[in-house]
């Protein structure tokens, strides 16, 4: 009987701890919403005031590379949630494979972004450009996309940490750490969904 009470108490403590960690991550993500919104607002106003410039930039850039990159990031989100599903089902090896794939696709996304920045450099689109045909675009483009890329980079590092701990069986009994990492990764994916639509398509 005493053991049952102990088990119930431990279970309740685990529930509280998991709920607190999830709450903390959502609060952090709420703060991120505000930061990204400021940058997105800056771009929206530019898009409204300079439709011709944006049209010309879209014509120069094309959408092939960024569309491929978008598919990679969407697939990484799927891999992430499949990893969570696997560890919840007690399949540790499968979980490690999915999280490894998530990190790999995150890295591929960053490589794609590097290639894109190289193309933009050839068009002489820079942060402080105020004189060329694309004046004012650089800061409004690089700030949100680079800030997002930095989040992907941090996400890959966090993913590698999850892999490292997961290998040792850290998440076998309580996969909340994987779920928390997943919340971060999916948020980064959502930010990209909106940046892709607003900056590259609209």
């Amino acid at each position: 009987m005493a053991e049952m009470s102990l088990s119930a108490a431990a279970l309740k403590q685990k529930e509280h701890s998991n709920a607190n960690q999830k709450l903390a991550m959502w609060l952090y993500l709420a703060s991120e919403v505000v930061i990204f919104a400021v940058m997105i607002a800056g771009y929206i106003i530019y898009r409204i005031n300079e439709p011709e410039t944006v049209r010309n930039i879209h014509k120069e850039l094309g959408v092939a590379l960024v569309t491929a990159n978008t598919f990679i990031l969407l697939a990484s989100s799927w891999a992430m949630v499949m990893g969570l599903r696997a560890i919840e089902m007690g399949k540790r090896q499968e979980f490690l494979a999915w999280i490894g794939l998530t990190c790999l696709m995150g890295t591929a996304f960053l490589v794609g972004q590097y290639i894109e920045y190289s193309e933009l450099a050839h068009l002489e689109i820079t942060l402080q450009d105020t004189t060329s045909a694309f004046a004012g675009f650089g800061m409004r483009f690089y700030a949100p996309t680079f800030f997002h890329g930095a989040h992907v980079f941090v996400g890959v590092l966090l993913g590698l940490r999850v892999l490292w701990l997961g290998r040792k069986g850290y998440y076998d009994d309580n996969p909340i750490g994987v779920e928390i990492f997943g919340l971060y990764w999916h948020f980064v994916d959502i930010v990209w969904i909106m940046l892709f639509t607003l900056i590259y398509l609209v």
Partner: peptide, 14 residues
């Protein structure tokens, strides 16, 4: 479409 995609991720993946 962008908003629908975001909601799908929030609702099901998160």
């Amino acid at each position: 479409i962008g908003i629908i995609k975001s909601l799908l991720v929030i609702w099901f993946y998160m």
